[in-house]
Amino acid sequence: MRKVLAVLCTCALAVLLIYVVTLLPAMGDPDNPTNSNVVPRYLEQGEQEAGTRNIVAGVVFNYRGYDTMGEVAIFSAALAGIFAVLGAGRRKIGRAFIDESRVKFSFVSGTAVVLVMPLIILFSIYVIFYGTDSPGGGFQGGAAIGAGVMLFTAAFGFCRAQERIPHHVRIILESTAIGGFFLVGTAGVIGGANFLTYAIPSLSAQSQTALRAAMLLILQFGIGIKVGVICTSILFALLREEETDGVEHAC
């Protein structure tokens, strides 16, 4: 009964959505409203106005920087939510399941991780700092840092990974992005413009460009650190929950 109802609902939805698809403007046509309305200005003047060769980064950080602030807040809120659900306190930490599991990482893989880790970190820093000129940016670089920490945790276990980045350091680093947005935004207000304006109208054109580049860099860096740290914190919170089920070991 439930299955029949589900199939019927889905079919009705599918018919409606496919019907809409047949009415939409043809994909990839240069005359579409999406390609002719707001976007030409981004493409033609984006490099000059927003200060980024990568137009997507220009839209994300400059034209629509307020959305990005909301997005960063969502990421923080999700971490706070995970702490709220799983418990945040620095209680006794169980031994990570990878330490106990039957398949142990060998000496070879441990060495390989040690060799690869610096490269991963270097790569993420590259992605973070060149995000304004090439594909990449704070989110992508931060995700790479998170992946690196995940690899390290897989090879050496949860306890050793957690020693490297203690709880209170993570809590402090998490605030970099929103703090950065608040400070950079307020700098614009003090300079006589609106919130999140990366330019101070009274300065000369050259110092404006330098200022804007510096502010974009602060934001990229803050977001990169924050995303990396939050990925790490989520991983640790989930691993600890996985583990504290059984016997409590101190690390």
Binding site: P30, T34, N35, V38, V39, P40, Y42, L43, E44, G46, E47, R53, N54, I55, V56, G58, V59, V60, R64, D67, T68, G70, E71, D133, S134, P135, F139
Partner: peptide, 23 residues
Amino acid sequence: PIVVPGEPPSAMVNPLPQAMILT
């Protein structure tokens, strides 16, 4: 949508949906 000197800007795809999806 990455500016390359000498290429026409109109040949780049729309960056706005990409920015939305990033969010």
